[in-house]
Nucleic acid binder design. Sequence first.
DNA 1: GTATGTGAAACCGTTCACAGCA
DNA 2: TGCTGTGAACGGTTTCACATAC
Lengths: 197, 197
Amino acid sequence: MKSVNIPAIAVQRLTLYARNLALLDQKGMEVVSSAGLADICGVNPAQIRKDLGYFGQFGIRGVGYYVKELAYEIRKILGLEKEWRLALVGVGNLGSALLRHAQFLDQSYTFVQVGQITVAPVKALKRLVKDKGVEIGVIAIGPRWAQQVADEFVGAGVRGILNFTPVQLRCPSDLHVENVDFTRMLDMLCYRLTLNQ
Amino acid sequence: MKSVNIPAIAVQRLTLYARNLALLDQKGMEVVSSAGLADICGVNPAQIRKDLGYFGQFGIRGVGYYVKELAYEIRKILGLEKEWRLALVGVGNLGSALLRHAQFLDQSYTFVQVGQITVAPVKALKRLVKDKGVEIGVIAIGPRWAQQVADEFVGAGVRGILNFTPVQLRCPSDLHVENVDFTRMLDMLCYRLTLNQ
DNA sequence: GTATGTGAAACCGTTCACAGCA
DNA sequence: TGCTGTGAACGGTTTCACATAC
């Protein structure tokens, strides 16, 4: 791994590459060039090579990349070899969908070893996180309670939070928070449609 | 509006400002400075002023911004004054959650006038889009069928697609697609947690 | 010959700093 | 005085172009 700072956006693209490499692998393709993968992913070939360059050299000049191998290397880079334990708060609404249809998760995460997802009444959270070694808290509850749940997750010792509410959470800076906010994406869509009449 | 190209990321932040302005308004605050809003949103004050500057002059020097007024102006910029009609494909899984718990949507969209959301068997899509004037298609179906549904939406004359599947959709360039991909956000989280041991 | 890996250049977005105005 | 609006400086990301290796 290089000592330069790796842009977060490059890491995000890595997940895109991993997904499409898995698809190529399923189709029996063994080798792919940066140009080929770039076309599928909708990015510039040089960008793929640059992104990969942050972490090492995975290709063969004059040939390309071995699909299986590159997919594995990216999974390793992203830390997806490990089994992550998640706790979900919010059994109603979005939460129940995430839980009840675990196959949805599995389908998109064939290459990820996601651990048990546990539903917990908020009060029992602290014990649960400590006993079960939960590392990631998922907040899929109404926006009104989002900050409170986040605080409890923090107090319980979770290291990261996946936030499905549109609330901007206030958390300690050493805690990692990722937001999935479809209302924002919908707003963006409306803006772009409005621009083009 | 300025004639320079407006970065998509600036527009995305506008939605963040709008949301927090609505909250400030609910709390009875009438005026806010770029510094005050920036603190709440977790961004740089100059960035807010710059973002707004793409669209006009909304503040008063030495004072700040009128909360209600700015919130309204941003809604207008984003095209959220209009009522948007959406069609949802995917009643199972994520889709049912989006539909059955409309109050979830309402809660986060108090300032948005989102139109009827219609569930349709895929075959009837074309007629539905044309008869009801649907402008945005929402794809919350299994990844396996995502591209097919997208193609049908395109054929039916939808102008934009909100894609909840992790599939990179292939669509005509004049169609607007926004992706909500929580698997990617989860991957990012895992990477960052792995970095810090 | 072909495709990677990577410095250099071009481009874009963010932040600074201050002029302009209430 | 205080805060907006904005040109300029800065920093970071993308793309180019070519040396390098198979």
